[in-house]
C-alpha cells in the first residue's frame, strides 16, 4: 500500500504544483492576491472541452486552444480588474475585491453559458489504459499529466532564468519602480505575466478536467484554497518553492489519510502548513527580506 500511496502523493502533488505555477507567478510579480485565478483555470477547462466536443480537435490542439484562450482572458482580467487599480496606486488589498468581483462574473458567465452541471471530456479523448508495476497501478492520464507538469515546470523555470522577458519579470517582481528606471517596460511585462500565468492556469484546467472528470463552473473553488496554501507555503512568487510546496501538501494529505484518518485530512494539512510557516515565516524557499506594505 505504501508504494501506491507514494504514487498517489506524487500524482496529486503534480496536480497542485501545476495549478500553483501560474498562480505564484502573478503573485510574485504583482504582489496581489488574485482570487480570480481559479475562475481562469475553470474557463481553460471549458475552452479545452469546447475545442474537443464542438470543433472535434485532438486533445493536444485543444490544450493549445485552452492555453491561448485562458491567456487572453488573463490579459482582459488585468485590463479590467487590476490595471485600473495600479494606475490609481491602490493599496494591495483592493485587488482582492476586484479579483473577487471578476471571479464572480466569470463563474456566473460560465454558469449562464454551460449550466451548473458537471461535464467531462469524451471517453475516447485519451485511452483508458492502466499500467501495473508490482503493487502499483497508474493510468495513462496520470502518467501524461505528471510528465507534462514536469515539462511545464522546467519550461517555466528556464523561461524565468534565461529569457529576456523572464528576467524582466523577476526584476519587476523585485521592484516595479527600479525596473522602470532600468528601462524595462513594466506594463508590457505585467501583460506578459498575466498571459503566461493564465495560459498555465488554462493548461492545468484541461489536465484536471482530463484527470478528474468534474468540469463545472465551480471547479475552481476547491483547488483555489489549496493553490493559495501551496504558493504561500512555497514562498511568495517562488516558482521552485511552489512546486516543492505542492508536493509537500499532497504528501501530507495522502499520508494523513493513509496512516491517520481521512476525517482530518484538511486539518492535518493545514496544521502542518502553520507549523512550517512558524519555522520558516517566509515560506519554504522564501527569502527573509521583509516586504513593505
Amino acid at each position: 500500500m505504501f508504494w501506491q500511496q507514494l504514487v498517489n502523493a506524487l500524482w496529486l502533488g503534480s496536480v497542485y504544483a501545476l495549478f500553483a505555477l501560474g498562480y505564484t507567478l502573478v503573485f510574485g510579480v504583482l504582489d496581489i492576491l488574485n482570487l480570480a485565478h481559479g475562475a481562469v483555470f475553470m474557463w481553460g477547462a471549458f475552452f479545452g472541452l469546447l475545442a474537443v466536443t464542438k470543433l472535434n480537435m485532438p486533445i493536444w490542439a485543444a490544450l493549445l486552444v485552452a492555453m491561448l484562450g485562458a491567456g487572453i482572458l488573463g490579459i482582459v482580467l488585468d485590463r479590467v480588474a487590476f490595471r485600473p487599480l495600479r494606475k490609481r496606486n491602490a493599496p494591495q488589498l483592493a485587488a482582492i475585491i476586484s479579483s473577487i468581483g471578476a471571479s464572480t462574473i466569470l463563474v456566473s458567465l460560465a454558469q449562464g453559458a454551460f449550466g451548473a452541471q458537471v461535464s467531462r471530456f469524451p471517453f475516447d479523448t485519451l485511452p483508458a489504459q492502466v499500467f501495473t508495476a508490482g503493487p502499483v497501478r497508474v493510468t495513462l492520464v496520470q502518467v501524461i499529466v505528471f510528465a507534462v507538469s514536469l515539462v511545464l515546470m522546467a519550461a517555466l523555470l528556464l523561461f524565468m532564468r534565461r529569457s529576456r522577458s523572464g528576467k524582466a519579470m523577476r526584476a519587476v517582481a523585485y521592484s516595479g519602480r527600479i525596473s522602470s528606471l532600468l528601462g524595462i517596460d513594466v506594463d508590457r511585462i505585467i501583460v506578459t505575466t498575466f498571459f503566461v500565468s493564465s495560459a498555465l492556469a488554462g493548461a492545468s484546467g484541461v489536465f484536471l478536467g482530463l484527470a478528474f472528470s468534474a468540469i463545472s463552473p465551480f471547479m475552481g473553488a476547491p483547488i483555489e484554497l489549496k493553490g493559495l496554501a501551496v504558493i504561500i507555503l512555497g514562498g511568495l512568487g517562488n516558482v521552485p518553492g511552489a512546486i516543492l510546496a505542492g508536493f509537500l501538501l499532497a504528501a501530507t494529505e495522502v499520508f494523513g489519510v493513509a496512516y491517520v484518518s481521512s476525517d482530518f485530512r484538511d486539518a492535518i494539512a493545514f496544521t502542518v502548513l502553520i507549523l512550517v510557516l512558524l519555522i520558516r515565516p517566509s515560506g519554504i524557499l522564501g527569502t527573509a527580506v521583509e516586504r513593505r506594505a
Binding site: 500500500m1 501506491q4 500511496q5 498517489n8 502523493a9 500524482w11 496529486l12 496536480v15 484536471l208 484527470a211 478528474f212 468534474a214 465551480f218 471547479m219 473553488a221 476547491p222 494529505e253 495522502v254 489519510v257 493513509a258 481521512s262 476525517d263 485530512r265 484538511d266
Partner: peptide, 20 residues
C-alpha cells in the same frame, strides 16, 4: 470507513487504503 469533502476530486488515497 473513509471520508471526503464536498468538491473533492481525488479519492485515490482513501480508495488505496480500502482496496488493501
Amino acid at each position: 470507513t473513509e471520508t471526503f469533502a464536498k468538491g473533492d476530486t481525488d479519492f485515490s488515497a482513501q480508495l488505496t487504503k480500502i482496496a488493501a
